[in-house]
């Protein structure tokens, strides 16, 4: 479904991503793990067109999306939940969710999706009229995921959903991530918490200094001595 070939990202001469190739199949959850600064976020940003790729290409559902305008990405069915959540702080929770459905006009279906998201995260429903900036970090993460789902995407890109959150919150968020994936959502997950990411995903890629150094079934990566040593703290 998503095919990334020879992707290259650089910031003013600094190579963040060096020609990486990977793919995500339909209905699959794939984890991209690696240390801070390995190039994971840059990879995601280049796929979602937040930044320009220097080289390589990105195909989604067979279509080349490497150079499409940034605001067309969501139209293709890709929703990014950005690092640091990126909620609109002075819009209400309900307005943030409405922004996720910005391009949709199917009112009845949107209402159904909203109910579903409030079902995943009852906290958001309680706080629907509150400004998003007043939410806790975990609630903002819920909102960011809910907002992405409101676009009814074909694929979710999750950038560090566990970052800075209390363990109980991480657990809640990942319950929903699992539930959404179980319904067949294609997902690319980026995490520093490698254990968590490999537990929920089917396949994984390990990134180091902008390159993919290891790939395989998540279960076998979890047992790989190199992964255990470098990312699982053993």
């Amino acid at each position: 479904m998503l095919e990334v070939t020879g992707l290259h990202v650089a910031y003013g001469g600094i190579q963040a991503v060096r020609s990486i190739t990977f793919h995500v199949n339909e209905g699959e959850m794939v984890a991209l793990i690696g240390a801070n600064g390995a190039g994971k976020t840059s990879t995601l940003k280049a796929i979602a067109r937040v930044i320009d790729a220097v080289g390589g290409d990105v195909h989604f559902c067979g279509e080349d999306i490497t150079r499409i305008p940034p605001h067309h990405v969501i139209r293709k069915g890709i929703a990014l939940v950005p690092e640091g959540r990126g909620v609109f702080p002075r819009l209400t929770v309900a307005e943030n969710l409405a922004m996720g459905a910005f391009l949709r006009h199917d009112k009845a279906e949107m209402a159904a999706d909203l109910d579903k998201i409030y079902g995943y995260f009852p906290r958001l429903k309680e706080r629907a009229a509150q400004l998003a900036g007043t939410l806790s970090g975990g609630e903002q993460q819920m909102l960011a995921i809910g907002r992405a789902l409101m676009s009814r995407p074909k694929m979710l890109l999750l950038d560090e959903p566990s970052m800075g959150l209390a363990p109980i919150m991480v657990q809640k968020i990942f319950e929903v991530v699992r539930a959404v994936a179980a319904e067949g959502m294609t997902t690319l997950l980026i995490e520093q918490n490698a254990k968590l990411a490999l537990e929920v995903s089917q396949r994984g890629y390990v990134m180091e200094s902008g390159e993919i150094t290891l790939t395989g079934e998540s279960a076998s990566l979890l047992n790989d001595p190199k992964v255990r040593a470098a990312y699982l703290g053993e």
Partner: peptide, 15 residues
């Protein structure tokens, strides 16, 4: 309003 608060994310929403 969304663009004023975070243009990059507004763009992700299709704006």
């Amino acid at each position: 309003r969304a663009t004023a608060q975070n243009p990059a994310v507004a763009s992700l929403m299709g704006v």
